[in-house]
Design a protein around this nucleic acid. Structure first.
Lengths: 100, 100
DNA sequence: TTGTCAGGCAAGTCAGCGCTTGCCTATGGT
DNA sequence: ACCATAGGCAAGCGCTGACTTGCCTGACAA
């Protein structure tokens, strides 16, 4: 459970995918491929992106819905809440610990 | 920078170390080793834990201070704030997207 | 000085992960 | 029927990462 979440976040490309879905949720695999290669100069096979999406889905960060031959991918940031719940982040207003 | 953070969080043992430091900050390497093997039945070499601490320190999640031959490790959760800043987490009160 | 304790450095091993390649399924258009 | 499109499955490869082992440094005590 938590394993899947952190493993999903561990990869750079997957984080870029999350960025893209944050920008516009509900994209198809091909759309995501296109945007990655355009905006980030990432030349990657479709399979690679597909596998990344599977990992993100296993972590609950991405939810999918099928419509005909299209599969749309939606972002779900809810699992991220567990992180700051596990290790409470001190309020920025009282932050003096890392002003270096 | 972000790479180091997520890489640090990716490992199960490192997350346990963060848990221990959340419980009691300012422990030495040997104390952390002892607690991991006691509370979590983790039999691991001292070096392994030491290397984990180095990774956590590179991520800014752990800060260290030397006193004589002791080196104390303190938790710093500030870097975690970047996560929910990058992918804003919807407020739980308006959460209807993942009640499944 | 000698011994012990806390910690660090470096090389080597082994498993897991990211990615590719090749082939397959299924939906929709003509 | 045919073909193109959107996506999936599975085997294989290379590289990174976790862990061990062995040896070394530095601080305190006798």
């Amino acid at each position: 459970m938590a394993d899947d979440l952190f493993k999903a976040l561990a990869d750079h490309t997957r984080r870029l995918i999350l960025d893209e879905l944050t920008d516009t949720s509900g994209q198809t695999l091909f759309e995501i491929c296109a945007r990655l290669s355009m905006k980030h100069r990432l030349s990657m096979s479709r399979q690679a992106v597909s596998q990344h999406l599977a990992v993100l889905e296993a972590a609950g960060l991405v939810e999918t819905r099928r419509e005909g031959r299209y599969k749309f991918h939606d972002l779900n940031t809810a699992p991220l809440r567990e992180i700051t719940r596990r290790w409470p982040v001190s309020d920025p207003s009282e932050a003096q610990e890392s002003t270096s």
